[in-house]
C-alpha cells in the first residue's frame, strides 16, 4: 500500500484511527461530557467512512451521503437527549463522574 493515490484503504485506516481514538476516550474519560465528546468522534468517523466507501466504490451514488445525513441527525438527537439526561444528573449529583454512577451494580 503506497501513499498515493489515496484509496479505500487509506480512508478506512483514517476512519479506524479516528474511531479508535474515540474508543480510547470512551474508555478513559471519567466525566460524562467527555464520554459524549468521544462518542461524537466515533459517530463522525463512521459517517465519513460510509461516505468514503460509497464514493470510492460507486462514485456518484448518493446513498453514502444520504446515510451520513441520517447519521448526523441521529447524532444530533443523541446529543440532545444525552444532555437532557446529563444536565439534571449533574445538578442532582455532586459531580458528573460516571465512575460514581454505579447504582446499577449487581
Amino acid at each position: 500500500m503506497s501513499f498515493f493515490p489515496v484509496g479505500i484503504q487509506h480512508w478506512l485506516l483514517l476512519c479506524l484511527a479516528l474511531f479508535s481514538f474515540g474508543l480510547y476516550g470512551l474508555l478513559t474519560r471519567r466525566s460524562a461530557m467527555g464520554l459524549l465528546l468521544a462518542i461524537e468522534i466515533m459517530v463522525n468517523s463512521a459517517a465519513v467512512l460510509v461516505v468514503a466507501l460509497i464514493h470510492l466504490l460507486h462514485p456518484g451514488k448518493l446513498d453514502g451521503q444520504l446515510s451520513a445525513l441520517f447519521f448526523i441527525a441521529l447524532a444530533a438527537a443523541e446529543v440532545v437527549l444525552a444532555l437532557g439526561i446529563y444536565v439534571p444528573l449533574a445538578r442532582s449529583r455532586p459531580s458528573g463522574d460516571v465512575t460514581q454512577l454505579n447504582d446499577l451494580r449487581g
Binding site: 474508543l23 470512551l26 474508555l27 478513559t28 474519560r29 464520554l35 460516571v98 465512575t99 454512577l101 454505579n102 447504582d103 446499577l104 451494580r105 449487581g106
Partner: peptide, 18 residues
Amino acid sequence: SLTLLQSGQLQGYASWML
C-alpha cells in the same frame, strides 16, 4: 456469581462489549 460482572461501571461494560 454473575453479578460480579455487573459493576455498574459504564466503561466496564463498554470494555467487555468491545
